[in-house]
Simulated scan of single mutants.
Amino acid sequence: MGKNQHVVKNKDGWSVKGANNSKATSNHRTQKEAIERAREIAKNQKSEVVIHGRDGKIRDKDSYGNDPHPPKDTKH
């Protein structure tokens, strides 16, 4: 299982950062673009996307790993 991917606000837009990384993996103009990129990485690494709001608080999570007890996701 790879590193969880965090979508976080930066001064110019939104970044995708691997868990515990100090530098961003990628930077994007919109949160939507950052989420799409984070999902690609998470699917490849079988990890999780953690989406933060403008205030830095976790807003949502999506798991792309091999969870033996997956939640019943009603969003998708």
Rank of each mutant, 00 (worst) to 15 (best):
4 N>S: 08
57 K>V: 01
29 R>C: 04
15 S>E: 14
34 A>V: 03
49 V>E: 03
24 A>V: 08
3 K>V: 05
34 A>G: 09
47 S>T: 02
39 R>K: 11
2 G>V: 00
72 K>P: 02
13 G>T: 09
76 H>F: 11
62 D>F: 12
25 T>I: 14
32 K>L: 10
26 S>D: 10
35 I>A: 10
1 M>W: 04
12 D>M: 07
52 H>Q: 08
41 I>V: 13
33 E>D: 15
60 D>F: 07
72 K>H: 08
54 R>L: 11
17 K>R: 13
53 G>E: 05
47 S>W: 00
2 G>W: 00
66 N>C: 08
22 S>E: 13
40 E>S: 06
50 V>A: 02
21 N>A: 14
27 N>C: 10
15 S>Q: 05
53 G>V: 05
6 H>F: 15
11 K>G: 04
75 K>I: 07
21 N>Q: 15
13 G>H: 08
69 H>S: 06
66 N>P: 04
59 R>G: 09
14 W>T: 08
48 E>I: 01
7 V>H: 03
22 S>Q: 09
32 K>Q: 15
70 P>K: 02
41 I>D: 00
3 K>Q: 12
5 Q>W: 01
66 N>M: 13
8 V>I: 06
73 D>H: 12
27 N>Q: 09
5 Q>D: 06
55 D>N: 15
51 I>R: 09
69 H>P: 00
3 K>N: 05
42 A>K: 01
16 V>A: 01
49 V>I: 03
55 D>T: 13
74 T>I: 06
6 H>C: 07
70 P>W: 00
61 K>T: 11
14 W>A: 08
45 Q>K: 08
28 H>Y: 13
32 K>H: 08
30 T>C: 11
60 D>H: 10
2 G>S: 00
37 R>A: 14
52 H>F: 03
18 G>P: 05
20 N>P: 03
23 K>Q: 13
47 S>Y: 02
49 V>K: 00
18 G>Y: 02
26 S>R: 14
14 W>M: 10
71 P>W: 04
40 E>T: 13
34 A>M: 05
26 S>T: 13
21 N>C: 15
54 R>F: 09
51 I>E: 09
43 K>R: 12
24 A>T: 11
12 D>V: 06
3 K>W: 05
33 E>P: 03
62 D>N: 09
58 I>S: 14
55 D>W: 09
61 K>N: 01
45 Q>M: 04
63 S>F: 06
23 K>I: 11
4 N>M: 08
30 T>Q: 11
66 N>Y: 03
76 H>S: 10
36 E>P: 00
26 S>I: 04
5 Q>R: 08
28 H>D: 15
51 I>D: 08
70 P>G: 02
65 G>Q: 03
17 K>L: 14
16 V>M: 04
48 E>L: 03
47 S>V: 02
24 A>C: 14
6 H>Y: 14
20 N>I: 08
62 D>S: 12
11 K>D: 12
28 H>N: 11
61 K>D: 10
33 E>Y: 08
10 N>H: 05
73 D>N: 13
64 Y>F: 13
45 Q>W: 10
5 Q>T: 02
75 K>A: 06
